[in-house]
Design a protein around this nucleic acid. Structure first.
Lengths: 237, 237
DNA sequence: GTTGAAATTAGTACGAA
DNA sequence: TTCGTACTAATTTCAAC
């Protein structure tokens, strides 16, 4: 189990939760959508936007929080303004049976913002934010190199973060499918507004765009599977 | 300019902001730290935790928001509970001079949660969240393959998200450095609390841990530079 | 930049549909 | 379950210091 799944809520008290919890209906999803785009909205305003009563909104809000469907509320910071203008991805190959140590060491590195275990050539990807490129070098050669669990690393720099979206819920999907189908009929629309949330009340046809013939030869697409024994390694972390 | 830097605040009105904006002092940083771990805290409680008056907290809070240092407030959702249990990373090689189109198409794919332009073998990394593995396949072969800008892709699956931290501010760094130095003197402390925010008032010695002899041969560490002409390509997106 | 008081709003508890 | 209302507590705003 990951740290994320173990302690979903920072500072919250509902640790060790197991089981499916509550079933999320469409109203729950609407609440999550609103909360993702504006985490500081008042419950009263939330109720109005979702179209339910205030009391109901309070009940569902608390349920989502307690259930863990909402893990936490956070402010997205402009890292450049905060003095951490350099972002890098470090792909790490981890020595077998040493995941636990790797994770423990990760927890001690505050410059690590995100870490995921992946299939493919490497075992994990970590994202770090630091003040300058020298700090990346220090991070990799001094900090990561001192972890016995780390077998090898590969570092790339992030030049630009094009997109970071909070609109990732199944309901968006249906909407996009409809838009895509419409586009397929009417041609491209370059001026589309990517992040505009206004479509919450819009109709969401469920048509799916059919395959239209690719520009990329399928041979150039690689799906990279897990390295040997990766699945087993997940358990001991 | 990326979408992120162009429209920092979702739904906000302060678009098109240029320039350095306000200088962030230590109090601003404290505010950001608190807000990252609890985006729904009241300004009154925030003032108390930071150790300033309410009026001051309101002023600074608004300044940070208007300046764009706080881009938005959002709720972190448990994607598994929300029905999007599969996360994948797709590394994309983009055809030169077609970044603009690539970005426009990305904006139409709601399953894309994050996209960054990187140095290294590929040009961009996108993170997608979908309901099942088949959807990843569909996404890559049907959606991405139809974008002329996409030359090639490589897909890996995320097996587990070990860490997602909101505690990424320069002030954390000094604290961690002090901890690291202390550890170097007193031995490892496996039971350390990674995400515990309580250390806000703690002393932050600025000592840096010196290099202690690596376990990883330096030859196994790769820093991957930008592909040819990448810097130029950034401008036209 | 701080404190204190007024106005507004948020959160809670209840009965009714 | 959900809604509507009334009640209590808290927050935000605005003033003077």
């Amino acid at each position: 189990m990951s740290e994320i799944s173990r302690n979903g809520v920072a500072g919250g008290g509902q640790a060790g939760r197991i089981g499916i919890g509550l079933e999320l209906d469409e109203t729950h999803m609407k609440i999550l959508e609103v909360l993702r785009e504006n985490g500081r909205i008042s419950v009263a305003a939330l109720a109005e936007r979702v179209g339910i009563s205030r009391a109901n909104a309070y009940t569902r809000f608390e349920a989502l929080r307690a259930d863990g469907a909402i893990k936490r509320f956070t402010a997205e910071i402009d890292h450049v303004r905060a003095g951490l203008g350099i972002t890098a991805l470090i792909f790490v190959t981890v020595r077998q049976q040493m995941w636990k140590q790797f994770r423990a060491e990760l927890a001690r590195m505050p410059e690590v913002e995100y870490c995921a275990i992946t299939t493919g050539q490497h075992d994990a990807m970590i994202q770090v934010r630091v003040s300058d490129v020298a700090a990346v070098h220090t991070m990799v050669t001094d900090r990561l190199a001192n972890i016995p669990a780390v077998k090898a690393t590969e570092t790339v720099f992030i030049l630009d973060e094009v997109l970071r979206r909070p609109y990732v819920l199944p309901s968006d999907r249906a909407q996009a499918r409809g838009q895509a189908a419409a586009r397929a009929a009417s041609g491209p629309q370059p001026g589309a507004q990517p992040g505009a949330p206004g479509g919450a009340q819009a109709a969401r046809p469920q048509r799916r765009p059919e395959a239209q013939g690719g520009d990329v030869p399928l041979g150039k697409m690689r799906f990279v599977g897990a390295a040997e024994g990766r699945a087993a390694l997940r358990k001991d972390g």
